[in-house]
């Protein structure tokens, strides 16, 4: 019993990490590239309108991730917090600034007000992506501190966020009035994939001498990442980038699981039974909400809404 629930709990933790990276990667990544894909106030508004339906439903994966750490894996939480306190403070600040931008930008009419909060969205998105890069890189390396590996890995993760963002933008920004934004995003898909591939190579080379990302277990995910990026940079380009970028950004999460050496302790029986018996009936509702929201907002609404 306890083994099964402990394994399920570890899977749940991994699911929330990968789910957050794949889903929130899209809205954070597009926020990072707003200055690049949007020219002028109207195009910027369209970008925020593309992000808005999703960010509420994607950041809950992060909140749940922290919840699972607090309730089921306190030793892992302690391990991560003790090593990465300053980066996690930056991550929280990035999240605060970006979300404040999304919530506030449409509350007061006027170009200055919107530009201020658009700036918050961009700055917050970059802070989030780079902080996540630093967190994942340090966990894969297994030790805190600056090295070629952590720097290269952190920047590569940020590029994977950006790639996820342009793939999302190439799809969501298509419309009569701003085909331009979608075109810029589509063209950038190849470039960013190429840059991320270069980053992956540097990271891999940096990992060789230090032994970070230990051995064979890390090899398969790394090859999958390189293949997904190569496909996006080369033949498939923006066409399949929605899927290839999702595969790519999930790899750093998987690498933490296989190579990070997290102190995953068995969850004590009573806590595991309590959490799973309350969680199990909620899972269908959680899934229905997420799937429904994604299906419903596939087509942009014609009228202006709450966020943009």
């Amino acid at each position: 019993m306890s083994d099964v629930l402990s394994s399920l709990s570890s899977l749940l933790l991994a699911l929330f990490v990968v789910g957050y990276l794949v889903l929130a990667g899209a809205d954070v990544g597009l926020g990072m590239l707003m200055p690049r894909v949007a020219r002028g106030p109207d195009q910027r508004r369209r970008v925020v309108a593309a992000i808005a339906p999703y960010f509420l439903a994607t950041e809950v994966w992060l909140v749940s991730l922290v919840g699972v750490l607090a309730g089921l894996f306190p030793s892992v939480e302690h391990h991560v917090v003790a090593r990465l306190w300053p980066v996690l403070v930056a991550l929280a600040a990035g999240l605060l600034v970006r979300d404040a931008g999304l919530w506030l930008r449409s509350r007061v009419p006027g170009a200055g007000w919107a530009a201020l909060w658009d700036g918050a969205v961009v700055a917050g998105s970059w802070t989030l992506a780079l902080s996540w890069g630093w967190v994942l890189a340090s966990l894969i390396a297994g030790e805190p501190g600056i090295s070629l590996f952590t720097v290269a890995c952190a920047l590569t993760v940020a590029l994977l966020f950006a790639l996820r963002g342009v793939a999302f933008g190439a799809e969501r920004l298509v419309g009569e009035s701003d085909a331009e934004s979608a075109d810029v995003a589509a063209r950038d898909t190849r470039r960013i994939a190429l840059a991320a591939l270069a980053g992956t190579s540097v990271t891999a080379v940096a990992a060789l001498p230090s032994g970070a990302g230990v051995g064979a277990a890390a090899l398969v995910p790394a090859v999958v990442l390189a293949a997904a990026l190569a496909a996006t940079a080369g033949l498939s380009g923006p066409m399949l980038s929605r899927h290839t970028s999702a595969v790519a950004i999930s790899v750093p999460g998987v690498l933490v699981a296989v190579a990070g050496g997290l102190p995953l302790a068995a969850v004590p029986d009573t806590t595991a039974v309590l959490v799973w018996s309350v969680l199990a009936p909620a899972i269908p509702v959680m899934l229905i909400g997420q799937v429904w929201l994604y299906r419903m907002t596939r087509r942009p609404s014609r009228s202006p809404g709450f966020f943009a």
């Binding site: 909140v63 919840g67 607090a70 309730g71 939480e77 806590t271 959490v275 309350v278 959680m286 909400g289």
Partner: peptide
């Protein structure tokens, strides 16, 4: 106190806030 104080918080994030935020989006 993760297993005692943290467990209800874990349930709050998953079974309450996760659902609340998604359905508010809907």
């Amino acid at each position: 106190y993760g297993y005692s104080f943290g467990a209800p918080l874990a349930l709050e994030t998953m079974t309450a806030f996760f659902v609340e935020s998604t359905f508010l989006g809907l």
